[in-house]
Each structure stands twice: as structure tokens, then as C-alpha cells.
Design a protein around this nucleic acid. Structure first.
Length: 271
DNA sequence: ATGCGGACCTGTTAGC
DNA sequence: TGCTAACAGGTCCGCA
């Protein structure tokens, strides 16, 4: 589920139920996520109030007065508000129970996600400190991307999916943005012109912003209960459409693999 | 420094 | 219908 728009949608969805609430009890049913859930997390957050809920890349930052709980949803993670005491399913690995009788429940079948704790500035955490700019911020522009890419021989798709270059561009939106920009995924990053980087930056911003907007429409469902998103499906131009007709020129879309991820592109519109 | 492949783990789907 | 293999929204790590 979680690309950046999903994470942002999650943040907006749970924020009203979380910020200002005091943690009564942390329940960890399965600590073995990507990294073990820190032993000290319970004592750090129990009795404390969530002061803010921020996002950096795909990391959610729960600010307490003594530090920050960092949550990453990995490939299959999700967060929901449930009544405290609601029976836990197989993959409901942890609950943060608030004094108001509601709990924030972390679910993650594949357990690629993470729940971490850092005292002090979360942006100094090893996982966060060398992240690239936020894609929707003014820091992320064509000149930056162009300069950063000079000398890079790897595919442009891998380049924009590299979180040290820019955060939050996952496989789906990398494919979509490259299509909108008319750039072939396997083209060497260092060989993309400034002019085309402008198109690419605009495409990334547009595609992410639009997805967040559409995610917003599912907010109510999401917090309310089952929350299976499907919002982006209808507006995808290339992802998941290999062999089908290009929406612009009707050529048959081609699928290839870069790294171990599937890439879909139009052989005519993307060069 | 950069780039690549492997690893983590489970559920769903495609194919025989 | 049932079994097996391939694949899935992420990203860290070790090695060349």
C-alpha cells in the first residue's frame, strides 16, 4: 500500500485521533519487524502525550516531549484507529492504547515495516539523516535533479527511486512520472537534459499531489474501518498496463525489469 | 562513490 | 481443483 501518497493519507487520517492524546499502554504482540521494536519504547511513551504527527519521506514521526516514535509501513503496513480491546488479527503486531479508549493499531503481514524510538531530533536518526528533499517542496527542482544526476550511469528510474536523491517516489509513481515526462525508464540518469529534468520534476510533483488529493477522498473510509484504498487505480497510465494500449498513441506498452522491479513504458512516447 | 543483487516475510495470483 | 512458482506498494546491506 504505502507509497508517499498513502503514507500522507494515513497521516492525515489518523492525526485527529492521535495528536493531543495520552498513551495509556503500549501492546507489542510481535516485536520482529524489520528491526526489533525497541524495548524502551513502552516506558518512553506510556503516560505521555502525542504532541504532533509529522511525515518525512515515508516515515511517520510521532512527536512526544521526550523524543519521537518513528513508524515506517514497509510494503504492507497500515495504521488504523480501533476501539481498545478489539480482538487482534494475525498481523496486528502492535497497539498504542490511548486514555480515551481508542487504540492506534499497526498491522503488517510482511513485517518489512519498522517502529523505532529516538530521543531528540528525529531528523538526525541514521535512517533519516541522509534523505533527499521532499518531492513536493521547493527544494526539489530541475536544477537540483540535473546537477545531482551528472555522471550517474544507472537508469533514471532507479535514480528517482533513490531516497538519497528524492524521497517518496515508489515504483508505481516512478513509472507514471517517467511516462508523463516522456522519458524511458532505462535511460542513464546522467544523460537526461536539463529541459527533460524540468518535465520530470513537474511530472513527479503532479502525480504525487494528485494521488494525495484522491487519497483524501478515502479518508473517512480509511479511519472508519476497512480502508482498502483503490483510489489510484483509475488514473494510472502505465503501471499494471503492460501489453495494453498507450493512452496517448495506442502503441502496445512494454514491460521490462530494472533491478527487480517491473517497469512499464510506451516505446513510442518515451525515449 | 556508485551500482547491483540479495535479503527480509507473507499473501495473492498465474500457470501447470 | 490443487500444488508450485512468481510476484507484490520498500529499502538496507554487502560486495565489486
Amino acid at each position: 500500500m504505502p507509497e508517499l501518497p498513502e503514507v500522507e493519507t494515513t497521516r492525515r487520517g489518523i492525526k485527529p485521533y492521535v495528536v493531543g492524546e495520552r498513551v495509556e499502554r503500549l501492546v507489542v504482540r510481535n516485536s520482529s519487524l524489520r528491526w526489533p521494536v525497541p524495548q524502551e519504547l513502552a516506558q518512553q511513551i506510556q503516560g505521555s502525550q502525542v504532541l504532533e504527527l509529522l511525515r518525512r519521506g515515508k516515515y511517520l514521526l510521532f512527536g512526544f516531549s521526550t523524543g519521537t516514535m518513528i513508524i515506517h509501513l514497509g510494503m504492507s503496513g497500515s495504521l488504523r484507529i480501533v476501539p481498545t480491546g478489539q480482538p487482534a488479527g494475525k498481523h496486528d503486531h502492535l497497539d498504542i492504547g490511548f486514555c480515551n479508549g481508542q487504540s492506534l493499531r499497526y498491522t503488517d503481514p510482511r513485517r518489512f515495516g519498522a517502529v523505532l524510538w529516538i530521543a531528540g531530533d528525529p531528523l538526525l536518526h541514521p535512517l533519516l539523516k541522509s534523505l533527499g528533499p521532499e518531492p513536493l517542496s521547493a527544494d526539489f527542482d530541475a536544477v537540483y535533479l540535473y546537477q545531482k544526476s551528472r555522471g550517474r550511469t544507472g537508469p533514471i528510474k532507479n535514480f528517482i527511486m533513490n531516497s538519497q536523491v528524492v524521497v517518496g517516489v515508489g515504483n508505481i509513481y516512478a513509472n507514471e512520472a517517467l511516462f508523463k515526462a516522456g522519458i524511458r525508464p532505462q535511460r542513464a540518469a546522467g544523460k537526461v537534459s536539463l529541459r527533460r529534468m524540468e518535465l520530470l520534476v513537474e511530472a513527479i510533483k503532479q502525480v504525487l499531489a494528485q494521488a494525495i488529493e484522491m487519497g483524501g477522498t478515502t479518508l473517512r473510509d480509511f479511519v472508519g474501518g476497512d480502508g482498502k484504498p483503490g483510489y489510484f487505480k483509475q488514473s494510472l497510465c502505465v503501471y499494471g498496463r503492460a501489453g495494453q494500449a498507450c493512452v496517448q498513441c495506442a502503441s502496445s506498452l512494454i514491460e521490462s525489469r530494472l533491478g527487480q522491479r517491473s517497469s512499464v513504458y510506451c516505446p513510442r512516447c518515451q525515449r
